[in-house]
Every structure is written in structure tokens, then in C-alpha cells.
């Protein structure tokens, strides 16, 4: 009865959980800047949440160091369905300048299905907002797929 309403709301209120998997903090700062008055992602309903249990979009930054690998996998498992994974910056995609290091276990694709990937070191805030908006659309579609499955 309310399923249509829920479907519509899905894309309007994506909550973000941010995992730093060994990032240099550049992408993390840019992600925060997305929520500042200049870019104001909150007008699209985005909100940073503190726990993976309430997250819809998991944003991963950093090259997945061996220290963070297990923690990342656990955290991703704790996000309820439907969920979308966004890789932020070049590091989770390719390892970037850290590629080949003994302590890097990337890329992110090895551990989870990545729905949206933003390149750049660091990506521009505009690109991040666009990626998040795309992720929100994917979220709504995943929800529909789950219902039709």
C-alpha cells in the first residue's frame, strides 16, 4: 500500500556512511566540503550518518591498506539492504600512487560490487555530488529490483 511512496522516497533521502580505508585525507576533506554551504548536498537529502546500520550509500576512500581491509569488509557487511557502494578518488579504484605497496590490498572491487566510481586525486566536489546523485538513483532502482525479484 505504501510501497510506491517508499520507492519514490528512496532516492530522496540517501544517508551516507564514509569509510576511510587508508586515504590520505584529501578525498575525505572534499567529501565534507560537499556538505558545506557552497555545494550543499543536503538539499538533495544527503546526510552523513554515524553508523553503517542506517547508511544507504557507503563511500570508500583510500587504497584499502591491509590494516583496514578486514574492518572495511565487516563494515560493508553491516549495512542493511538495499545499499550502494561508491568508491571515492583514484585510490580504491586502482591503488593510485600506492599501487604495488606491500601494505595495499586494493582495489575495492576485490571485496564488493562497486556501483559508482569517482576518479581523481582528489575528485572535484561537483563530481562527488554528481556521483552521489547517481548513487541515489541506483539505490532507488535496487529497491525496485528487490521488490520485483
Amino acid at each position: 500500500m505504501f510501497q510506491k511512496m517508499i520507492d519514490k522516497s528512496m532516492a530522496k533521502s540517501p544517508w551516507i556512511f564514509h569509510v576511510n580505508a587508508g586515504s590520505c585525507n584529501g578525498c575525505d576533506i572534499e567529501l565534507v566540503s560537499v556538505l558545506t554551504p557552497r555545494y550543499d548536498a543536503e538539499r538533495l537529502g544527503f546526510r552523513l550518518t554515524g553508523t553503517p546500520r542506517q547508511a544507504d550509500i557507503v563511500v570508500v576512500s583510500g587504497p584499502i591498506t591491509s590494516q583496514t581491509r578486514d574492518r572495511l569488509v565487516r563494515t560493508l557487511a553491516q549495512v542493511p539492504e538495499p545499499k550502494v557502494v561508491v568508491s571515492l578518488g583514484s585510490c580504491p579504484r586502482s591503488g593510485n600512487v600506492f599501487k604495488g605497496s606491500y601494505c595495499v590490498d586494493g582495489p575495492l572491487e576485490k571485496y564488493t560490487h562497486v556501483d559508482v566510481s569517482v576518479g581523481g586525486c582528489t575528485p572535484k566536489p561537483e563530481a562527488i555530488v554528481a556521483a552521489l546523485a547517481k548513487a541515489a538513483e541506483i539505490l532507488a532502482e535496487k529497491r525496485k529490483e528487490m521488490r520485483q525479484a
Binding site: K12, W15, L44, G45, R47
Partner: peptide, 17 residues
């Protein structure tokens, strides 16, 4: 800022999870 009905969307979204 978010739309006026944002808390309502949040609630409905939570219901779909």
C-alpha cells in the same frame, strides 16, 4: 537546505530498508 518534507522522506526510506 533539504525540502520541507525531508523528515517524511527519511522515514519512508527507512521503512524500505
Amino acid at each position: 537546505g533539504p525540502p520541507l518534507l525531508q523528515p517524511w522522506y527519511d522515514f519512508l526510506k527507512c521503512c524500505g530498508k
